[in-house]
Structure formats: C-alpha cells, structure tokens
Design a protein around this nucleic acid. Sequence first.
DNA 1: CAGTTAACCTGTCAGC
DNA 2: TGCTGACAGGTTAACT
Length: 303
Amino acid sequence: MPELPEVEVVRAGLQPAVTGAIVAGVEIFDERSLRRHQPAAGSFTDQLSGRRILAAVRRGKFLWLPLDSGRAVVIHLGMSGQVLLRTPGATTDHLLRIRLSLEHPTHGELWVNFVDQRVFGSMAVDAMAPTADGLPGGYSGTVEEDAPWRDHIPTQVAHIARDPIDPSFSASAFFALLARKNTGIKRALLDQNLISGIGNIYADETLFAARIHYEQPASSLSHAQATTLLAAVRTILQRALAEGGTSFDAQYVNVNGQSGYFARSLEAYGRHGTPCSRCGTLIVRERFMNRGSHFCPQCQRLR
DNA sequence: CAGTTAACCTGTCAGC
DNA sequence: TGCTGACAGGTTAACT
C-alpha cells in the first residue's frame, strides 16, 4: 500500500500489536525481500531474533520498528507490499515473503506477515543515526518524549524529506526548494527528497484540487499557488487517511486485510473519460514517467 | 551538477 | 480457452 495514507494505516494498525513484543521467530520465504538489508552487521534473522520492538514509526512511505538493540526494522511496501497480522497457525497468505513470530507480554503470540506481489518492497534491519535537525525522526503516535529512538532515523531513510503532515515539516524550506527546481511540478511532488509521502494518486489529486498542470515548471509557481498546493496536499492526505486510504482492489489493505474508502472520493486519478466535477470537461490521461497522469485540460492549463 | 530514464518484479485484465 | 500486451499505488542506479 504505497502512499502516505495507506502506509500510516499500516503503522497505526501495527503500533498496538507490536510495541513491547519480543521477536521469537523469523522465517524468510523469499530472499529478494531482503534486498535492502546490509548483512555486514549481521544477518536479518540474527539482528532480529530475541529483540524487543519499542514502537512503530513512519516518515513518508517508510515505516520502521525501533528495537532494544538500538537498530530498527525498516519496512517499505514498494508497489504491492502488505503487512498482515495473523493468529499463529493461520493458513499461509499467498505471496508471503517474510514472517515474524512475536511474543507480546499481554497479547500473546502473533504473526506479522510481509506479503508482496511484485517484490519492490523490502524489510531490513538498519542502524539508527541522530536526525540532522535534532527533531523526531518520524510519526509514532503518542509516545513518551524521552525515548532514545525518537530523534533518530534509520540510515537508509535519512535522505527522505519530512512529509507534509509532520509537525516539523518546513513549508518555507519546501517553497524554496520548489523555486529552484527546473522540472515539472508533478516530478517535484513525487521527489521524496523534497517532500515525502506523495505518489501518483495523490500527486494527481492535489494538482487537480490546486488547478495546476502537472508539467508546469516547479520554479514558475507563484507563492500563492505553492501555498494553495501545499494546503491541498495536506487536506487530501488527511481526508484519505480518515477514510482508511485508497483501495481499488484487495491489494491495498490494512493490517487486518480490510480496504479503505478513499477511492470513491478521487476526482482525477483513474477518472479519464469522465466529466470534471467542476467544469464538465472530460478528464484526460497522459503518459508521464512511465505511468499515467490524470488531469482536467480546462481547469489545469499549462501557462 | 541536475534532470531523466531504465531496471527491478508478478499478477490481472482487455482484446484477439 | 489460450495467448499477448498494457498496466499497476515506488525507488534507485545509471544514464544524458
């Protein structure tokens, strides 16, 4: 489940189940899902076995579980990853790549199944480093202030920008980056080094809301346009999160395998050939960055 | 250097 | 009923 709202749905579902639990077992069914694990400090299984999970944290589309070893399990869902909580003994999920068996002091035994059709996602145990700004590494719900992992971030996530619903996100810094980007605004929105958490669906939705053409040069946006766009990003991500994320099929589900409801609220993504809700002009789909870009040719003019 | 493209993968669905 | 090609919500290495 790829974009910020879908990943946050997973994080929120994981947090109460895994916080305080001990990793009692690790089963690897497909080594490719460990592509991002650097074995120099030890194998994935060795780094994880017997460790206690302290929290569930997210920045953009990256998720991590800090461990009592000072390291963290980093999870990225890629295009098709799922994290499913199962009762031990449950029937094997199709396309299961990795399974963690947890022992929780009060909830008992639990399976955390990492399922991933396309294997673009991954799990890895990674070192933590202090954040560059000394602020919290990501969102972890309501957690004690002095936890040592709080102002740290996994090294493989350090280059990812803060996301727009992070209280520490700097709008002025983001506007300054946009102002010197010589590329289209959609490319900039999808660049996780500028702003994280936005993918193809929410890029199209927010540009539609802000009435900006996807190829409009990022540096050409007025301050007012950039402000409108960021406000749209925040509003739409929050609404999608409140509705449990966007699901077109059983691929994008929460930790219990349930779909979200935001798909019915989409105004542009996947709506090509249907009338724009504002002006009635047919929504167009164009090929862009090897994917689809959906927009209203009347409301979103290139200028 | 910044910007853009290719590669990594499997499953599903439309069209023949 | 196959077969083929298009398509899918992301990231990063390697191009230009």
